[in-house]
Design a protein around this nucleic acid. Structure first.
Length: 167
DNA sequence: GCCAACGTTGGC
DNA sequence: GCCAACGTTGGC
């Protein structure tokens, strides 16, 4: 049984730690999204994100938080090996190969937005003002995005849907 | 740097 | 199972 239709997600990253430009600089513009240590986000990574899903890349905890780029999921959830690496900042002594606890996906950068979409930009938009990322106190590093929100971001950015080329 | 909001931990 | 204490996130 396969899931029909792609879905869309917003993923947060602190640009001082890993920026959209960093993703675009990786071979194949692809990198694994490790280090998520929140069970709600873990469940999404493990169970919900699928190859081909669209990703809005959001810069958080920075002077100008904004959606800055478009990406896609290129590998569905698999164990986050950094949890088993004692030298990693994300080491979790409870995790093991048999019980990985934490999961990650691989993400590929597709296009930078011509202009970052700031929180003010989002708040002013009739559809984007409903996005979860604007909700006060929202700390989920991976969160669902409605299809109309994905389309609205493309429209505001003046971009065609980069996922259409990936079929 | 402040602080509100939230998730997690652990004593009971 | 409750809930206070604590740590973290992240906008401002």
């Amino acid at each position: 049984m396969t899931r029909d239709g792609r879905r869309y997600w917003l993923m947060k990253s602190e640009p001082g730690c890993f920026s959209f430009a960093d993703l675009q600089g990786r071979p194949g513009q692809t990198e694994h999204w490790d280090g998520v240590r929140n069970f709600q986000a873990r469940n999404l990574l493990r169970d919900e994100l699928q190859v081909g899903d669209g990703v809005l890349f959001y810069h958080s905890n920075t002077a100008q938080p904004a959606i800055v780029g478009l990406a896609r999921v290129v590998h569905a959830g698999y164990p986050d090996f950094t949890a088993c690496d004692p030298r990693s900042d994300h080491f979790d002594p409870r995790a093991s190969a048999a019980y990985p606890i934490w999961y990650m996906v691989d993400v590929q950068g597709l296009a930078a937005l011509p202009q970052p979409l700031t929180r003010d930009d989002l708040r002013r938009h009739p559809l984007l003002c409903r996005m979860d990322v604007l909700r006060k106190g929202n700390r989920l590093s991976v969160q669902p995005v409605r299809e109309e929100e994905w389309r609205a971001v493309l429209e505001v950015a003046g971009l065609n849907d980069p996922l259409d080329r990936q079929r």
